[in-house]
Design a protein around this nucleic acid. Structure first.
Length: 733
DNA sequence: GCGTTAGTTATTTTT
DNA sequence: TAACTAACGC
């Protein structure tokens, strides 16, 4: 049975588990996706289940796609129509198939985060809520938080002024969504959960159908997703196979609840807990370091990665004088790796927050090293693309007020705030949409509004029956969007993106599986309206990050976005108290442990070489900050570290000498920190000092003279202290 | 309706 | 510092 070749004993056990609930604790690099996909293939091949009786859920489209690709490679089956996808994608599918039962229009629109915020603002304005007292973002956060707990506005108990008002806004927002036929991301899940919870025949149908439910990245599920899964697994005949790693849970801030792993074991009386601990990615030293680090966390299910590969190199530690020097050093190091024959794309620079990328980009750019930054604006999030999509949304559903407002005066056609206010008043009075009001009042509200109504109507009739890409083409021309950007000074990118949208539509239609939806009964797939399907696709899959996939470039990204990836060489930068661990995490309950998991994720990305660096001085928010080295450096056994910088003019650290490193220890003048004597003291600003009680610190500032001379010192986790020079027993570190 | 300016405010991100 | 927003003036 060739499917099962090349599996280690634990992987084999997981893949061939009988039809029972199981939890697989899959460590980093332990072959998680392999287990998941091989299990699916094995279940199908052994006749255990038909492709139709299987549900596999992931968090990202990328993971879902990867799964389907691997399954197709293992089995000669058509994966089309299989329920493999993201939580949101599958919920969308369910709601499209049962829109009537879910009380939604067939062509309901999906609001992305931006759309949702705009709608919240609109609702708040209509309610005359003070935006200073109730920041729309926080209200949005509140609404999503409630939805992720499975609560409607009426189910939330107010606990203060903010929540009381937020609940009212939530209720009004819900009403408006319903009126417009719009559904936000959290709503996709909640609505689909409620559908299954309330509609017994439907639930029983799906619960009976899905004999095997497989969940990827289980540690990232939120409460609502877990309850959704529970409903689908409620038949008593289905088996849930959850794969996850509690040590890699780094999304608590967006509602992920690792507690789901414990609940799952309890609620489903899981007897099979399988640990995948053999790591196929990293050398021993890297794993030992990561294991030692994560051992400092208390709430763990417990796991220890090991490898049959050798110990490899020690982890290299670099202490820079400034963030600029840290970046310059990395560039040199990468250039030397490239000279040794490594591809640039196999080198990754990781940082805790996006703001850190700037200095690094500058250093790479000035040395002419190609690089690629991950994150940022995605294709379908770009302004011009959103505008084009808004016109398309109006064609699908004219009552979509969000779309209406976005383009009613873009490109400008003389419809200002006054006309829009008049329309909003009229719509409110009639209880209808802006479009309805506009169609009725087109004469009175001004000729311009009438022009817009006629424009949309003409686009509608002109595109009726056209293939999708031709409709898109027509819309970007007829709307005037293309002309608008063509005449704009730096509009070429935007024009290209609009043209790219036409290509995206063409590519979308080409893949026929995008245009059908597998019905509940497993019968013949039903054709879907191509435009509606495309719009869902645009909302649910925000598009590739950037072009330039093929270029051999150094990879820059946050630690979060590095999850799931691996590289030959990894640089973890900015390892300073306050940055990583981030200072705002220390106030949160469990915050530090999450930061440590983040560090764990970062370290386990490296295959053979891992660099850890920090800087004594860093420009952040226009201010120079002096930081202490991150505690995470102390949590890695010293024997695994090789310090590249024994001394940078601020005292020696015993045992950290390395001959070769001396060359690197003197930064070029342009990166060197300017020596600045701290008042009349023997210390300098930025100098590392040791205090008998607070330990290591960095001089941040000086004040006072003579007997009153005081030093401001950053002691990292012990905070900022102002000490009298005369009394404090300070020593140079 | 649009361009300018002052003020604000800075984790992490997918769907 | 820099990027984004809201309000202001033409």
């Amino acid at each position: 049975m060739s499917l099962l070749d090349h599996l280690n004993p634990e992987q084999l056990q997981a893949v061939t588990l009988p039809n029972q609930h199981a939890l697989v604790l899959a460590g980093a690099g332990s072959g998680k996706t392999k287990v998941l996909t091989t299990r699916i293939a094995w279940l199908i091949q052994t006749g255990n289940v038909s492709p139709h009786g299987l549900l596999a859920v992931t968090f990202t489209n990328k993971a879902a796609k990867e799964m389907l690709t691997r399954i197709s490679a293992m089995l000669p089956i058509n994966t089309r129509g299989m329920w493999v996808g993201t939580f949101h994608g599958l919920c969308n599918r369910l709601l499209r198939a049962h829109h009537r039962e879910a009380a939604l229009p067939q062509l309901f629109q999906i609001l992305d985060t931006q759309d949702q915020l705009a709608l919240v603002k609109r609702v708040m304005k209509a309610m005359n809520v003070d935006e200073d007292k109730f920041p729309p973002r926080q209200v949005q956060w509140f609404i999503n938080g409630a939805k992720e707990e499975g609560r409607r506005a009426k189910d939330v108990e107010p606990y203060d002024d903010f929540s009381r008002r937020s609940i009212e806004i939530y209720a009004a927002y819900e009403e408006q969504c319903q009126r417009e036929g719009a559904v936000d991301f959290a709503e996709l899940l909640l609505r689909s959960y409620e559908l299954l919870a309330r509609n017994e025949p439907l639930r029983e149908h799906y619960a009976a159908r899905f004999r095997h439910i497989l969940v990827d990245e289980f540690q990232d599920t939120n409460r609502l997703q877990y309850r959704w899964l529970k409903l689908l697994a409620s038949s008593g005949t289905s088996a849930m196979f959850a794969v996850g790693d509690d040590d890699q849970s780094i999304y608590r801030f967006r509602g992920a609840d690792v507690g789901n792993m414990d609940d799952f074991r309890r609620d489903f009386r899981v007897e099979n807990v399988i640990r995948l601990e053999q790591n196929y990615r990293s050398h021993g030293n890297i794993l030992d370091a990561a294991n030692a680090l994560i051992a400092h966390n208390h709430r763990r299910l417990g796991k220890n990665l090991w490898t049959s590969a050798g110990a490899g190199e020690p982890l290299r530690v670099f202490e820079a004088q400034s963030d600029g020097y840290e970046a310059a050093w990395m560039v040199e190091e990468i250039q030397s790796l490239v000279r040794d024959g490594y591809a640039r794309r196999d080198c990754a620079i990781l940082y805790r927050s996006n703001a850190q990328s700037r200095v690094i980009e500058h250093a790479l750019f000035s040395q002419g090293v190609p690089y690629r930054v991950y994150g940022g604006l995605r294709f379908f999030e770009r302004l011009e693309v959103k505008h084009a999509l808004a016109y398309l949304r109006l064609l699908a559903n004219a009552d979509d007020d969000s779309a209406f407002l976005r383009v009613v005066n873009f490109p400008t056609r003389g419809i200002g705030a006054r006309s829009i206010e008049a329309l909003q008043d009229a719509a409110k009075a009639e209880g209808g949409s802006l479009w309805q009001a506009a169609a009725r009042l087109s004469g009175k509200a001004g000729a311009a509004v009438g022009g817009f109504v006629r424009l949309v109507e003409s686009m509608k009739s002109a595109t009726a029956g056209l293939p999708l890409q031709e409709s898109v083409e027509h819309v970007i021309h007829a709307s005037g969007l293309l002309d608008h950007y063509k005449s704009e000074r730096d509009g070429t990118d935007r024009v290209e993106n609009l043209e790219e949208l036409v290509n995206a539509a063409a590519a979308f239609v080409q893949d026929e599986s995008n245009l059908v939806v597998a019905p509940a009964d497993g019968g013949e797939p039903v054709a879907q309206d191509p435009l509606a399907a495309f719009l869902s696709h645009a909302a649910l899959e925000s598009g590739e990050n950037q072009a330039g996939e093929g270029v051999d470039a150094v990879q820059l990204m946050t630690v979060h976005s590095a999850k799931g990836l691996e590289f030959h060489a990894v640089f973890i930068t900015g390892l300073e108290e306050g940055l990583f661990p981030h200072e705002q995490s220390t106030t949160e309950d469990d915050g530090l442990e999450e930061e440590r998991r983040l560090m764990y994720v970062a370290m386990t990305r490296a295959r053979t070489r891992l660099y850890l660096s920090f800087s004594q001085q860093r420009l952040l928010h226009g201010q120079t900050r002096y930081n202490v080295a991150s505690r995470f450096l102390d949590e890695v056994p010293k024997a695994l570290l090789k310090w590249l910088t024994p001394k940078l003019g601020f005292g020696t650290r015993p045992g950290r000498l390395d001959d070769k490193a001396w060359a690197a220890a003197e930064p070029p003048a342009r990166y060197a920190a300017k020596p600045q004597q701290a008042g009349g003291s023997p210390f300098r600003i930025g100098q590392s000092v040791v205090h008998p009680k607070f330990g290591e610190g960095v001089v941040v500032n000086a004040a006072g003279q003579g007997a009153d001379a005081r030093l401001m010192i950053n002691f990292g986790r012990h905070g900022m202290k102002e000490l009298l020079l005369a009394y404090a027993k300070l020593e140079a570190a």
